[in-house]
Amino acid sequence: MRIPSTIRAAAVLAAGALALTGCSVQGGGSGEGGGDYPSRPVEFTVPTEPGGSTDLITRALAKSLEEPLGAQIPVVNKPGANGKIAGKDVFSGNPDGYRVAVMPQSLFAVGPLVVDDPDAITLEDMTFVKGLTVEDYVMVVPSGSRFKTVEDVLAADGVKYGTSGAGTGNQLAQALLFGSAKVDATAVPFDGGGPQLTAVLGGKVDVGTVHVAEAYEQIQAGALRPLVAFSKERLKALPEVPTATESGYDIVVDQRRFVAAPPGLPTDVRDTLASAIDKAVASPEYGKLLEDNHIGRWEVGGDAVGKQLKSARDGFRAMTERLGIDLSGQS
């Protein structure tokens, strides 16, 4: 009777695993009602590997938030499936305010254009607590490139452009630009901003689009030339760079990050957390980090976060449909 015993073993293991996962989710009850919130540590989940922009912002926020919130704030990285693993995990938990996540706009506004996932996290699956940051994109070429302006790029044929991967804002921004200008261009997706930048610097692709912070040092050192920004207004860090809108293409794509909790978070808990975040983001340390890394502030309330995500999602979809751009089959 070997098989039953293995099954039993598996069942025991499975039960053990359930108990383990259970630990992190349950234990809510004690902190219900905003009065005594928070009475224990508030965990911030980052949906990416350590080291990225979301991670950096969350850690800087957590550092300044402990005091105003009056609780310890452990930061936990739970990478996977472009943030879906972390999102599903956190947003299926108790809406008690002890586990929240910092999420990127791209997951909800760009992701659905790339992968058709019936099981995706939707805007209804979260309570928006607070907006945090906005980061703009800039298109760059190596300083030795034949492209001096964005017009040069758009007049060229067979442009190879780097992206930071499927479902990223920079992929969308470039696809929209080349689509609007009817340029024959091929996307070459890389595994993140760093590898994309390496390829641009090494001349392996013609152009690339990255966050301002990612390119800034190389621009200052004269290794990269910025051509166009995908922001509404000119960039504070690079005021000489024209926007896409100025060049005649109404394309504004940026990356925003916000704090979200499971749906049904009590209003008083949400307000306690949001007003503590307000104090944290006013700290000079947090401010310096944003400034050093050319990250903009987007400290709007929860409702405004929801509105922005919805308009970005619908706006991007309408634009890609109008231009006939299919990001998923992009080749």
Binding site: G51, L56, R59, T198, E217, Q218, A221, D292
Partner: peptide, 27 residues
């Protein structure tokens, strides 16, 4: 010297430097 992290550990080191207010790069 380039501000490009070569692996996962270097990416975190990069983050650590940024949190410290130092931006690694060619300069």
């Amino acid at each position: 010297s380039l501000g490009i992290p070569a692996n996962a550990t270097m990416a975190i080191m990069f983050g650590a430097l940024l949190l410290q207010g130092v931006t690694p790069g060619p300069l």
